[in-house]
Amino acid sequence: MTMATAVRLKFGPSAAALGALLALAAVSLFVGVSELSPGALFSDPQALGLMMASRVPRTLAALLAGGALAIAGLVMQALARNRFVEPSTAGTTQSAALGVLLVTVLWPEAPLGWKAAVAVVTALAGTSVFLALAHRLPPTQPFLVPLFGIVYGGVVGAVATFAAWQLDLLQYLETWTTGEFSGVLRGRYELLWIAGALVALAWWTADRLTILSLGRDVGIGLGLNYAAVLRLGLVIVSAIAALTVVVVGIIPFVGLVAPNLISRFAGENLRHTLPWVAGTGAALVLSCDIIGRLIRFPYEIPVGIVLGVVGAALFLGLLFAGRGDG
C-alpha cells in the first residue's frame, strides 16, 4: 500500500494535464492564416474541409511528433545513462537526414515510406556509433557525453552539408533540418502514427527500460536480457527520430527538456512518468507551433526555429538549475 500511495501520480493532476493539452489542441485548430471560427464549421462546408484537410492533421502531427520525440529522448537517456542527451544531440537526427539525402540522390522518386525506412537504417547506424563511444566516456563526467554528442552530430551534419553542396541539394537539406508543420496536410503526416505506436511500445516495455538505466550489472542481475533491451531502445529512438525528420524535419531539444522537467517532480520510474513525458513533449511542440503561427502573423516561423530558441534556453536553465540540489 505504501508503494501505491507513494508512487502513483494522483488522478486529479492527470485529468487537469489532459484537459490543458486538449485545450491547447483546440486553440491550434482555430489558429492560422485562413480565418476559421467554430461556428463556421457547421454552416460552411469549405471551413469543414479546411479543418479536416489541414488543421486537424497539423495539430495531430504536432502532438504525435512532440510526444514521440520526448519519448525518444527519454529512451536515449536510459540507453546512454545520461540525462543530457536526446536524438538531436547524439547524431541520430543528423544521420537520419543524411539517409534521406542519400535516398533522394539515388532514388529521387522513392515514396515517403521508403525514404523513412532508409532514414531509420542510417539513424540506427549513427546512434550505434554514438552509444559505443559514449559508453567509453567516464560516468563521473556526465557533461562530456552531450558535448561529444553535439559535436558528433555536427560532424555528421557537415558530411550531409558537403554532399548536399556537391549535388546542389542544399535547399532540400534545409527542409529536413528545419522542422516545420506548415506543409502538413492529410495524407502527408500519417507515418507519424508509427512514431505514436513506438511510444506505446516504449510504455509496454517501460520497466525493462527503467532497469536498463540502472546499468548493465544491475540489469543482468535482475534477469534482464540486457543486449536485447538495448537493441529495442536503439530501434525506438532511431525510428522515432527518422520518422519525424522525414515528415516534418528536425525539431531540437524536445527530447531533452520534457524528460528532465518531469523527472524533477515525478522521478524516473518510466511506467509512471512516461505518459507525463509524452504529454509534456506534445504540449511543448504544439505551443511552439502556435507561437510560430502567431508571432509574425500572417507569416509562419517554423517550429524548429522557435524550439531552437526555447529549447536551448530551457537546456541552459536545466544545466544550471540542477547544480544547487546536485
Binding site: L214, V218, G223, L224, G267, E268
Partner: peptide
C-alpha cells in the same frame, strides 16, 4: 542475486520503486 560494488545508480527512482524492481524476475 548479485550486488556489484557501486553500481552507480543515477536514476531518480524512489526507494520503494527501486526495491520493487527486485521483483522483476
Amino acid at each position: 542475486a548479485i550486488l556489484r560494488q557501486d553500481p552507480g545508480v543515477a536514476s531518480r527512482l524512489r526507494v520503494a520503486e527501486l526495491v520493487g524492481f527486485g521483483r522483476f524476475p
